[in-house]
Design a protein around this nucleic acid. Structure first.
Lengths: 328, 328
DNA sequence: CTGTTAGCGCTTTCAC
DNA sequence: GTGAAAGCGCTAACAG
């Protein structure tokens, strides 16, 4: 049995096509009688009528789909969590989510031009990762007049919406977490920091700020220079990321330093493996899902109501495990 | 400037609309002169004409999109890799990929009925994981007349396409890998095995088969009953999954057994954390991406050419790390 | 070889 | 309160 169309519903209900359209879309532009409304709804149910989204899109010029332009690997933890939030929010608002392939070919632009999607969520990669010219992508999107938002961007375009991570916040909350557990001799360990706009530099900043707030002495240690003897000067360390923390953990084990009894360790990011290390790592994580939801909501708002651009920044949150103890 | 339509192209080229349609679609049903073809292509380029996929879908009754009905968590390694393969293949064939939200509500059915998608890839969860009634989903898909394929299914419907994992192969290749390195005293370690159709039982089988082939004695050990003394009877162990292998690793460390010198360990699945354990685990992994590509290709073939159902099974492949050594 | 034309199913303007 | 009808952009059958 073929799918019922609006015509079939109208016929069964004994009303006009436009009546069906108005009534089923809950349009309050027109007032139909209670009777008519009931007749239409009954007929629609009886025929299990499903409005054809394509035909609707044809008229309205919309596909009601949000495109994801993703720069990360597909099997990336950050991407996965963001996607989850995006899908949840979009579907709540009647939008589907389309994965645009191969970002390097700008396929998301043609998806938009082909009307497969109504807007784009551009997910920029981790600052330190592969070469990626964010500006080129954003300029293309602007040129093509696509409603879009940038996630994890580093650029600063005037009329562009950004949903960003506050990298400084990760080490700030990590340091704060340690200080609240009576630590004061806290080192920060990170690979060499170059540009001060980099993620690496941002993360260092958060540590320094929080230490300064309490008047504690800061010690920033290059992970290459790390030695067991150095570690023994501290009761706790903040690692810029989980891989650095793993380094610390390995070194501690092999030199008889017990974590967390002798040394508390906290990592300012979370990896899939963080809780599987020799000591399950206490880490910091961004609220990826919330960010995804927020970005989806705003972008749909741009599509439907030409919403003004906004900038939102998200802070890190602690995920407790077993690598931190109170300082005696 | 508004997007050019086929009409605009026809006008600029001085030909009919249908000529443009035929020519740009490379339809060989009609033969147009070289000149006309050139005129049309030039005009299309000049206007940077992008065919409106929605209008096309309206006529053809297709959305050219594949729906993903996913039962795993979004941040699941298996799902991520499959998705990658699906997107790669689908886009090559002119299809986009739509993530259907919340599988429990059967949203993928309404996506199909709304013509947002032309077919579905149903990704069933790991056999041992959460309650999921595959049959219910498949019956719904059949009732709604949706072209679809099942990934990782356990059911055995007559006219349904399956893209499955051969769980027995994982332990078979793992055991084979050890035997080729001169091991013969090899134990298999796994949680308690219940039903013999379960993934757990399948995995055990592969180990037994390979051991039998070489005439070696099999020893299946319940991971709950594992003791350091037991371990000392073997030169190598196959663990059903990475978490069991982690158990072995932890026990080995704490009882002075060195991996891989005293004991080789191999896990029959791969987790994000496998290579971050105290000894980086040698593991087995399925070719998820290839499976995704294959499933996408076939499903599109079903959509476009009513292809016959097929069943494909994929075997595990070794990922080498540092937890296995040659038996002396 | 090329053009004309009838819709696909829906929204929305306009008229009653 | 309700209905008629014009199209959205495209494909494909049909006519020359």
């Amino acid at each position: 049995m073929k799918n019922a169309t609006i015509k079939d519903v109208a016929a069964l209900a004994g009303v006009s096509i436009s009546a069906v359209s108005y009534i089923l879309n809950d349009s309050n532009a027109k007032k139909y009688s209670k009777e008519t409304i009931k007749k239409v709804k009954d007929a629609a149910k009886k025929l299990s009528y499903r409005p054809n989204a394509i035909a609707k899109g044809m008229r309205t010029g919309r596909s009601f789909s949000l495109g994801i332009a993703n720069c990360w690997d597909m099997d990336n933890r950050v991407f996965a969590h963001i996607l989850k939030g995006v899908v949840a929010c979009a579907s709540k608002l009647g939008f589907s989510v389309t994965i645009c392939p191969n970002i390097d070919t700008f396929s998301y632009i043609s998806y938009y031009e082909n009307r497969r999607i109504d807007g784009v969520l551009l997910i920029a990669p981790a600052l330190s990762e592969k070469a990626f010219d964010e500006n080129v992508h954003i300029n293309k999107l602007i040129d093509a007049n696509v409603p879009f938002s940038v996630i994890n961007g580093i650029s600063e375009f005037e009329n562009v919406s950004y949903f960003n991570f506050n990298y400084a916040s990760t080490t700030f909350v990590a340091t704060d977490y340690l200080i609240k557990r009576n630590h004061s001799k806290i080192a920060y360990i990170s690979p060499k920091i170059s540009s001060d706009k980099s993620e690496l530099a941002q993360r260092c900043l958060g540590y320094e700020q929080r230490m300064n707030e309490s008047g504690f002495k800061t010690s920033v240690i290059d992970s290459n220079d790390l030695t067991p003897d150095l570690l023994k000067n501290y009761t706790a360390v903040v690692a810029n990321k989980s891989d650095t923390a793993k380094l610390v953990l390995d070194m501690a084990v092999s030199s008889g330093i017990s974590v967390p009894d002798d040394l508390s360790v906290i990592a300012a990011n979370t990896e899939y493996y963080s809780k599987y290390l020799s000591v399950p790592l206490t880490t910091v994580q961004f609220p990826f899902e919330a960010l995804g939801e927020s970005a989806a909501k705003h972008t749909i708002n741009c599509i439907q109501n030409s919403a003004e651009p906004i900038i939102k920044t998200f802070n890190g949150e602690i995920i407790e495990a077993s690598s931190v103890s109170n300082c005696k």
